[in-house]
Amino acid sequence: MVIGVLALQGAVSEHVTLLQTLGATVRELREPQELAELDGLVLPGGESTTMRKLLDRVGMLTPLRKLVASGLPVFGTCAGMVLLAQPESLNALPATIQRNGFGRQRESFEAELAVTGFETLYHGVFIRAPYYSAVDPSVTVLATVNDDRIVAARYQHLLVTAFHPELTEDTRFHQLFLEMVTGK
């Protein structure tokens, strides 16, 4: 099982370490030809504007858009959640994105979340985090903040979180993603 982690910018090594701990083989992705023969893809946290520009600059945006549309399982955290929903980026998840929706860095926070399918609360780390303010009815909402801000969701082969599971030792979201990859 080979999981690609987009490695143009952001919290790449944190995802790589976590995925390896869970037994996945990981490939860091920096150019279009590295997109071949993946079983799953992680879009890490970072600056979504920077990532989109770098994707475009190395000719990865169009191939990546095709790959995501082809049904490859994708896990997007924070910037990844933004890229998946933005029409000008990957345009794969029908949702309205609010970039930096919770405010600037001084409003960044940690919070306990009730997540659909998890037996106990999940500790979310939100850094200049986005949220979805609206989603298509076909999107499954997994967690919200203040009842109406969607911060975790699942749609077909896509999993997104507005927070950063890669900054904690709780592996439940990565495990969920790997289960999506193996089709359990």
Binding site: A7, L8, Q9, G10, A11, V12, S13, E14, G45, G46, E47, T50, C78, A79, Q105, S108, F109, E110, V125, F126, I127, R128, H164, L167, T168
Partner: peptide, 14 residues
């Protein structure tokens, strides 16, 4: 500490 250090981690490679 986690959100303050984490913010810098999100800037890596930039």
């Amino acid at each position: 500490t986690l959100v303050k250090r984490g913010m810098a981690q999100m800037q890596k490679g930039g």
